[in-house]
Design a protein around this nucleic acid. Sequence first.
DNA 1: CTGAAAGCGCTTACAG
DNA 2: CTGAAAGCGCTTACAG
Lengths: 334, 334
Amino acid sequence: MGQAETPRVTIHEVARRAGVSHQTVSRYFRHNEGLKPETRKKIDLVVQELNYRPNLVARSMRTRRTNRLAIALPASTYLWPVRLLGAASAAAHAEGFQLEVVSVEGDPGARAERILELAGAGHVEGILSLTPLEIDPAASPVPVVVTGDYDDNLRGVNELADASPVREIVEYLASLGHEVFLHIAGAQSFASARNRKRVYEQTIERCGLTSYGVVIGDWSPRSGYDAVRGLPEGSGVTAVVAANDHVAMGAVRGAISRGWRVPGDVSVFGWDDEELGRFATPSLSTVAVDREVQGREAVAKLIAEVRGEPAPRPSPRSINRVVVRETVGPPPSR
Amino acid sequence: MGQAETPRVTIHEVARRAGVSHQTVSRYFRHNEGLKPETRKKIDLVVQELNYRPNLVARSMRTRRTNRLAIALPASTYLWPVRLLGAASAAAHAEGFQLEVVSVEGDPGARAERILELAGAGHVEGILSLTPLEIDPAASPVPVVVTGDYDDNLRGVNELADASPVREIVEYLASLGHEVFLHIAGAQSFASARNRKRVYEQTIERCGLTSYGVVIGDWSPRSGYDAVRGLPEGSGVTAVVAANDHVAMGAVRGAISRGWRVPGDVSVFGWDDEELGRFATPSLSTVAVDREVQGREAVAKLIAEVRGEPAPRPSPRSINRVVVRETVGPPPSR
DNA sequence: CTGAAAGCGCTTACAG
DNA sequence: CTGAAAGCGCTTACAG
C-alpha cells in the first residue's frame, strides 16, 4: 500500500512556477477574467502539469461559505428515499451547492445532538432532515429544515406528512363495500405515521365504518406479516391499510399464508409506489408520492433559508396520488 | 424567514469571556486535560452559555486532517445498498471518521471527474466508490478505493464482484433437471454484472447445458419483465438467472402474465436478498450477500490506505449464500 | 491588469 | 499549567 498519492500542491507553488502572484492564481480560479491572455496561459500550463485544484476547505475558511448542504436520514433500512435524494441532489447542484448525505441514528435526543454537531462543524451551510428531530432552531448556527414531519410552528402541515390519501383510500374501499378495516401503522416517532393513523381513525369514524384495530408497526414487512397473522379467525377484517409498501407486502404474504385470497378475501393498500411492489403479484395498490417534487421543494426551502430569502411557495397540487392495483377489490360476498 | 440562527462564536470570544487565552480553550476541546480544575470550570461555563463548538473546518485547515471519508454511489435508483451504508458508516465512526455519501452520475468520465473534484477539495481524507470509475489512483491527492468492481491491479477479485454463486445456482438448477436457461444480466458497466454473465456462460458450457441466451438489462424490474415477455413461444427455457432481485421480480411477473406458473413452468433466481423479495409470493430465491461484512471491510481497506497501513485481510469465508425459496422447483415434466 | 498585506478560526511548537 | 507567535491555503480589500 503506502501513500502513492501526489502530495498536495498549494496556490503558492502554482504561482511560483507560473511566475505570478498567488492572488492572480486565485483570480484565475474564481472567475478567470480580467487576466491577460498570456498570464492565463502561463497558469493554464502549470495547473495542467501539477494537476492542481484549489483547496475548498481553505477557501471556505476565508469566505465562510462552503456551498455544501447536508441531508440527514434515519439509519433505518426501510426509509432511504432514493428518488427523493436524486432530485434533492440535482436541485442543490442547480443552485451551486453540493449535497452530502449523513445518516443519523439513536433516539431523538441523540439525533439532535448529532445534527447540532454537524451544524456547528462548519462543513455545511444548511441541513435538511428527513428524520424527526427535537431541536431548537435557534441553537443551530446554520438553518435546519425538518421535512416529512409536522411543522410545529404552525406554518402549516408539510406535504410530506400529508395524510389525506388515507381518507381517499378508506372512502374508496368503503365504496367497494368494505366495512371492517385494519390499519398497520408505521413507527409512531414519525409524524407521517401518526398523521396517517389519525386520519384513518377520523375517516373510519366519520363514515360510520368499523375499525377492527390499529397495530403499531415499524415500517417493516415483518410487522405487516405479523399483524395479519395475528388476526383472530372471524375478525371480519376485509380491508387492510398499511403504512407503506413494505408493510403491505408483508400483510399480503400473511394473508396468503392463511389461505386468504388477495383481493378476494382481503384487500390491501400500501404507500410509496415502490418499484418492487408494482411488479409483485398481486401488484400492490399504493400511494404514489412525487419524490422528485418533494426533494426539489425541500431543498429549495432550505436554500432560501440559507440565503435569508423568503420561503418559496410549494407546488399547489398534491404530490400524492392513490394508485389502485391488484391487491384491491370488493369484499367477499356473504 | 430571515436568519434567526445564532452568529458563529469563535474560540477567541470564548477565551475572552473566560479570561484565558484561546490556546487554553483549544486544549480544553482537544483533550481536556492538563488544565487546572478552575480554569476548566471557567471555560465550561462560557461554552455552555454561548453553546460554542469548535469550527472543524478551521481545525482541519491547520491539522490537514478532516476525519471524514466519502462513499460514492451511482445515482441510479436500484443500487443504493442501505445495509452496506449502515455498516460502512458504523465502521467509519468506530475509527473516528465521519462518512458522507455523495451520488455521482453520468458516464465513467464524468464520474471520475466528479471524484477527482471531491478528492481535491480537501473535505475528505479518502473515498470509497461503489460505482465503476476510470481513474488513475496517482491523480488523486487522497486514496480512492473502488469496490464492487474488479481490481485491475490483479490483487485479486474483490468479494463484491465474486460471481461464484452463479455457478452454484446453475448447478443446483441442473440438478433439479433444468436444461435450458436464460440469463438476464445487469448493466455491463458494472464488473459484478460482467462477472455474473461470464460465470453463467462458463458454467452452462462446462456442464453441457443449453443457454437460450443472455439478455443485457439495466438492473430494473422492467428489464426482467421485458426479457421474459420477449421469449418466443417454445423457447424451452425453464430456468431464469436474473442479475438481482429487482430483475427477478420483473421476470416472475412476466412469466405469470404469460400464464406460466412459477416455479411450475419456470424457475427464477435473483440476487441480493431484498426484504420485499422475501415477502413476495412466490418468495424470491436469491443470493444473500452479507452487506455488513462488505461495508465494514471496504471501509477498513480505505482507512488502512488513508493511514498508510497495509491492507487488512478480508474475511476468509464467502459473504455470499445461495437461498432457495419458492420461485425455484423442478422443471415441468414432459 | 497584478501584487503586498491582512485575516478566516483554529493548532502546533516554543517559552515561561 | 498557560500564553505569545506563527502558519494551515485560501480570498478580500487596497495599492499601484
